[in-house]
Write a protein that binds this DNA or RNA. Structure first.
Lengths: 249, 249
DNA sequence: GCACTCGTCTGATTTAGATCAATGCGGGGC
DNA sequence: GCCCCGCATTGATCTAAATCAGACGAGTGC
């Protein structure tokens, strides 16, 4: 059974007539609230946001080739996007944490170019793309925010393209997670890897065994402590140094 | 001597009062002309386009860290974008042929995150980004075109991120060039590599020696004919098959 | 309880591509 | 013409990471 974003039951966001309740983790909402738009504009933005989910672990949010009609900000949980190549190998394109936006790479083709699956229970804020694009025509801040989101995704995509060692990639992955969790108010040093070693490997273009070995060595070297999927970063500065080239500072 | 886009002498596009002469290879101009806007809107678009150049081979168009203020479509020549890592190694991020747009990844940080250099004599159409963003607020086609350009760059960037063999990467590189030249009316089977083997290697994350060897083997296998920088594709379908996973069809 | 599975870890071996080391060669200057 | 200089090619060796193979341990179903 195919499950598109729009085929999901949705719960409209409460609007008690006077106050708009944007979810706190939604990137757009945050950007717009902080930009101080007038009430009418806020209402416009408000009505085109839909909360969807929860998606259970393993459930797909969209699949490669599905018609594109909405982008979505992750509100809770982790989303993995991936494609399957002709030999059946999975290529993980990204992990999306709360506050991050999925679906941006679908605009150009009007179809989702990859699959998106929930790694744990996931809630989303869905934005109809035609609607938000139309709103962006009248609200400069929204257009700007969309341009910025799109542009920064180009940069992120080029990062893992580089020619780096397993250690550099792994360090960059951990530092990136750390920063992104920290930006959302979670601990920068202790967090859970919500994806399997195999997922990490497919993302970093390594073999799962290599992921295991690198983590082991990082632990032996006192860089971190790892227990199953629990991570504690012990020497952030050394990790940052390793990751420097990949993340570009 | 630093050379920004805006520090260049520019030649305004001729406007004889009744007809607008957009350059034929400029992506924006093409998109907008074909969308049938009214005369006033065309004029608005027209005045914010500046033709800059020529940039000589080896000359920089912008450098990492330069303040961002304009995107530009390549009108003639090839532009290479790259960064230098902490060990001094060059990581080539992309090659831009006529009709392709540079600078899109600079929007999010308001600075160019990479260097751009001319590989041969280069002419550009420069678009002030603040101006075109402002115009996009009033002309839906422009906004849409910008969204599409940005979105497709995300996809392109994830391509070379994959976990592919030297053969697959090389084939994908050649097929991609072929398609892009063909889209601009050039031959799809015979073209010049405007970049050095080292540049190709740094782009494909290979050693220059490997690029040489793969090209040699492709020639021995009858896939192509290569003479210095001249390429003739002889067996396009086999190359496409090799490239399939990387380019995703 | 036990068997089964799936994810993870660890060690042994292999390999694709990097690196090292020469050599070739084409074009520009004189 | 001739000499350079920088890019390209070719061959020999090395190595980081993949692959192969097996063991372990935590859940899950029975």
């Amino acid at each position: 059974m195919k499950e598109h974003l729009e085929q999901r039951a949705v719960r409209p966001i409460a609007d008690d007539g006077d106050e708009f309740h944007f979810c706190s983790t939604c990137a757009f909402s945050q950007a717009c609230l902080s930009s101080g738009y007038d009430k009418a504009q806020l209402r416009e933005l408000h009505v085109l946001v839909e909360h969807v989910g929860p998606y259970k672990e393993g459930e797909h949010i969209f699949r490669e080739g599905d018609p594109f009609n909405a982008i979505a900000a992750v509100r809770a949980g982790t989303v993995k996007t991936y494609v399957i190549d002709t030999e059946g190998r999975e290529q993980v394109q990204g992990f999306f944490l709360p506050g991050e936006v999925i679906g941006l790479n679908a605009i150009s083709q009007s179809r989702y170019p990859s699959n998106a699956v929930a790694l744990e229970s996931v809630l989303l804020c869905r934005f109809s793309f035609p609607n938000i694009a139309a709103l962006a025509l009248r609200v400069p801040g929204i257009q700007q925010q969309l341009f910025r989101l799109l542009s920064s995704d180009i940069g992120k995509a080029s990062l893992l393209a580089g020619n780096y060692s397993a250690d550099e990639r792994m360090a960059a992955f951990l530092v990136s997670l750390s920063r992104r969790y920290a930006a959302r108010g979670f601990s920068a040093t202790r967090f859970l890897l919500t994806m399997s070693r195999t997922d990490i490997a497919n993302y970093l273009r390594l073999a799962p065994e290599t992921v295991s070995r690198v983590l082991r060595r990082f632990q032996d070297d006192g860089l971190l402590k790892v227990d199953r999927r629990e991570i504690e970063l012990l020497d952030r500065s050394r990790l940052e140094t390793l990751a420097r080239d990949v993340l570009r500072g």
